[in-house]
Nucleic acid binder design. Structure first.
Lengths: 231, 231
DNA sequence: CTCGTAATGTACGAACTGGTGAGTTAACTT
DNA sequence: AAGTTAACTCACCAGTTCGTACATTACGAG
């Protein structure tokens, strides 16, 4: 066997210069890159449609590395999901609306949720994919259980404040309010494609975006004020 | 759902008896059965995850027939989608709420939509799958363009009536109202799995079903009455 | 009854796809 | 300097999976 020198992929520079902190072998970075590329591939093609080979081809790592770090396609997908959810939680926890009056607080929460969904299309696709598979991966993950409680606490506090000052009349449950907000924001992004094809309107287009963003808030506030109840 | 098979299941009997009207070769029925089984398979596994061989194994037909009638996996999927949408349209067109007053009409429409989504889980999964693939199949279909107009007409009439009698204050667009209703009903079913895993509540469970069903109507009515607007 | 054709059964294959065995190299420790 | 091990490369395989070539059979027309 002639051991022809692996001249790398031509991309990685040979550096003896150790002043740079960059390392040619870096497990953390390789793992992170795999997760990033895998997320895009899964989101674009679905779980079964995504190809491990393709994920590998899209980066400077090889397929062997994927299995080295993640053991299987399924565990890779789970890792992608966990990372995506973690990012979401991180953003949500920065939300502080406690200083606002209840109506403004719930409106703001709705709009922030709207913006967040708008900005994380890949995440939404991953969740859709996971739902098609009836959450079989999430259920295996301990990390992801009861990830929702922080938001629920927030909503609960807002609802309590709203009732206390008389602005909210409807007896509403925090989870239900969360469903109202999420469903609207999620659907607008997740179903934009078929909706556009069937109704000839792009829900994600800029001219619709602003109007729909306002709508979420108004919707929830109107409900909480009790205007929808039968009299 | 015609099941005119004399034998419960098992092998088709060799019959020289021609008094029976049943034909052992029946293209229409074979096609229908393929579509039915394929729908379930696609809904359960996603587009790429569905296996043509498995679809064949799940019936009394062979894989060869699938290709004989549908040419390719992709065209089979499209046919499944078209059939599913056709059934939906058929149901929607039977809805008549014109005799009701506007508030009751929109509430009823919302609840009917709710029931409809509740009863057609497979359809919802197919739509989710199609959205993951950015509606690439639907776009190829002439049959499915502007399928939504009937519902929009209905909503428009209700909105006009509501404004006329003063019950609706909000300047609302028919498509937007449809989004409000659909998003809630669709999300409740499509995302029930991940939602259940994260929030520990099954949105499709009977005890929640009834409450959420009432909520859709109240939500939309509250919004249309203008209670959510900033003053 | 015979013949043409639509409908169906059988067997197979080429390309793919998740996963692995085994060796190699870089970086760190002592 | 030598040893240790984590990080990485390369070639390969066994099982799938979509799709097809070809043989066969039932049905209806004439």
């Amino acid at each position: 066997m002639v051991s022809d020198r692996p001249t790398a992929n031509g991309v990685v520079p040979m550096m003896k210069d150790m002043t740079t902190t960059e390392r040619r072998r870096d497990s953390g970075r390789t793992k992170a890159e795999i997760l990033q590329v895998a997320q895009r591939e899964f989101a674009r093609k679905g779980y079964a449609g995504a190809r491990v080979d393709e994920i590998a081809d899209l980066m400077r790592t090889t397929k062997r590395m994927i299995y080295y770090y993640f053991s299987s396609k399924e565990q890779l997908f789970l890792a992608v999901l966990e990372k995506a959810y973690a990012e979401v939680r991180a953003v949500e926890q920065k939300v502080d609306v406690t200083h606002l009056d209840p109506v403004e607080a719930i409106r703001t929460l709705a709009e922030l949720t709207f913006d967040h969904h708008d900005a994380h299309r890949d995440f939404i696709k991953l969740v859709s994919i996971e739902n098609i598979h009836e959450a079989e991966h999430i259920r295996k993950s301990a990390t992801l259980a009861n990830l929702g409680t922080p938001v629920l606490d927030l909503i609960e506090r807002i609802l309590a404040a709203g009732k206390a000052n008389g602005e909210f009349v409807t007896e509403a449950d925090a989870v239900d309010v969360h469903i109202m907000i999420s469903s609207f924001c999620f659907f607008r992004v997740s179903n934009a494609y078929t909706f556009g094809a069937l109704f000839g309107r792009d829900m994600t287009a800029p001219e619709n975006r602003a109007r729909l963003r306002t709508m979420v808030g108004e919707l929830v506030v109107a409900y909480l004020r009790g205007a929808g109840a039968k009299d």
